[in-house]
Design a protein around this nucleic acid. Structure first.
Lengths: 340, 340
DNA sequence: CTGAAAGCGCTTACAG
DNA sequence: CTGAAAGCGCTTACAG
């Protein structure tokens, strides 16, 4: 009545454990008749290999861990689709939220070190992740890690990564706003000093400077709807307002637009708003949000491909950084400023 | 140079493996001086127990698996916060997407059966999950499973679950629309026959019937922005339109509103739109979306508490179904119909 | 193509 | 409070 093991299968089939194991893992090396007999027994008693034992014995699992900051962010849907499309049925994907490990952390590390996972895809800015862990040694190959979507901290610069050129993307978007006549543009960003937004801030700043707008306005806050609302309350209730707000992500932009609507400020007539990410909520916003699109599915595919490569070529040191193309999406939330 | 094991720690500390193991798992049963010595060695050589071995030996892990349909859905953020708040540091949470297991499935099952996880929280409608797996037997206790957020199929009716009363919630929302004067209301739903929306459809239908509106209009589609857009294109381009659309979730409602805006149909003046879920995007929509709120964080907390209870009381058969309160949130997307 | 045997790293009664 | 020993279920050289 207890869960059947390889031993019972062997006994019932009249073969050794080894043979059963071979039937499972390298059936091509087993006599056809033996194989059939063993498989019949497996079927009959409903045997399933104990993964825990298997992983332990092999010293590794077939699980790829994907770390995201926050499960509810819609941008991850497509990325995961891409990842799974590439990984196929060879590996299972499990997810963890990095914010959950802020204090915990230890478990997360144990999981990696203990090789319950065979590789890691980090879709979150890196601070959470202790680079020492992937060091590896003579006997212990380093655990393959690929960073996707977000920029890479200096610590982890030697890891393969896949992302857009955030500096250039922000530069392009800012330049677009300047080109249509805006001069008073505020960049509504995330936390000060955060890696995620640093490149975007610099891109904004450089574009502004190049256009002769030396009075840089960057507002730090939170990369969320709430953050956008807070920023809007500060920026839009002043006597002199910027004519355009370039937001570090779409959630901020959505928060900004909702406050603008509350205050009776018309977008884009009185205020242009530009987002970043092109999440599913950008296109259906009212007005539809102009934004910078990241090729999310491709980010997923490419990170997974890099991981696969690392998995299949354990020796190679491939610090490949892939820069994927971004795309400016102009919808209805941006327009020439009124008085220009 | 190889990864240190318990054996090396024992040798270096001059004790047996057993003692090292005890230092790790039941330090209160170890002499203070021994403990100190062993801990020092552990520290020095950077020993970390091999989780794979530990789990295998113990026959279980300390991981709780949370299954969601789609990682990108914002509703899961709060639920997971609630789950983790309750589970604390005693368990790690990993996530899997049920949609990914549509074909795969086998791996998912293996993971459960192999007890790589100690319990499961299902936040997705149940079809994906094969109830036979949790059967258990004399020697094998059933794996604790708690269903949260979504309604439970008949198959799994004996499992503990936590959700709102979807029938009543939809009934309340519909009644509200009727009370403010609407008679031509269409329910924009998900897939036909889907468990997720069945109760909401019935709640809508019952409220309509009770109000004497016998001509029921339910449109089936997809529970997404795209689905809402498609539905709106069908419903709003006709000569005779409903005066209100009650959508099975907020994403649909957002899709509907965006198409309405495109078509120049004013919400709520020409058309009332009601959502369901109260995701973070509802409040900032333009106009802000009236909807039905689910107590998401509480759903997470309660499912986790039920799981914890099941974990701590393996014998007890507690098929507790918890019905949590919903809340009607009236914002600006609903109003009296024009001609009433 | 198959089997006997060792062993992965840990835990757990059982003695002492 | 501590140690010697068995064993969890599987895989993997090594013989044959």
């Amino acid at each position: 009545m207890a869960k059947p093991t390889i031993v019972q299968v062997a006994r019932l089939a009249g073969v050794s454990n080894s043979t059963v194991s071979r039937c499972l893992n390298q059936p091509e090396n087993v006599d056809r008749k033996t194989l059939a007999r063993v498989r019949k027994v497996i079927e009959e008693i409903g045997y399933r290999p104990n993964l825990l034992a298997q992983n332990f014995r092999r010293g590794q699992s077939d699980i790829v861990l994907v770390v995201v900051h926050n499960v509810g962010a819609s941008i991850f849907s497509d990325i995961l689709d891409g990842i799974r499309a590439v990984l196929g049925s060879r590996f299972s994907v499990i997810l963890m939220e990095s914010r959950a490990e802020a204090q915990g952390h230890a478990r997360f590390i144990d999981l990696l070190v203990a090789k319950q996972v065979v590789g890691v895809i980090l879709l979150c800015a890196s601070p959470t992740f202790d680079p020492r862990l992937i060091g590896g040694s003579d006997h212990q190959p380093r655990l393959p890690v690929v960073i996707g979507l977000e920029p890479v901290s200096a610590d982890l610069a030697d890891l393969p990564s896949v992302h857009i050129d955030n500096h250039r993307a922000a530069h392009d978007a800012t330049t677009y706003l300047i080109d249509i006549g805006h001069r008073e543009i505020t960049f509504v960003s995330g936390e000060k000093g955060s890696l995620i937004t640093a490149d975007r801030e610099r891109g904004f700043a450089d574009a502004m400077t190049q256009a002769g707008c030396t009075d840089l306005a960057i507002l730090h806050g939170d990369l969320s709807i709430q953050g956008g609302m807070a920023a809007a309350h500060r920026l839009l209730t002043r006597a002199i307002r910027p004519t355009a707000l370039f937001c570090a992500n779409d959630d901020i932009a959505l928060g900004v637009m909702s406050v603008a609507a509350q205050l009776g400020i018309a977008v884009p007539d009185d205020l242009s708003v530009m987002g970043f990410d092109d999440t599913v909520y950008a296109a259906t916003a009212n007005p539809p949000l102009s934004t910078v699109a990241q090729p999310t599915r491709e980010v997923g595919e490419r990170t997974a491909k890099q991981l696969l490569h690392a998995l299949d070529h354990p020796g190679e040191e491939a610090h490949l950084t892939e820069i994927l193309p971004h795309r400016l999406i102009i919808r209805k939330s941006t327009a020439r400023p009124r008085q220009s």
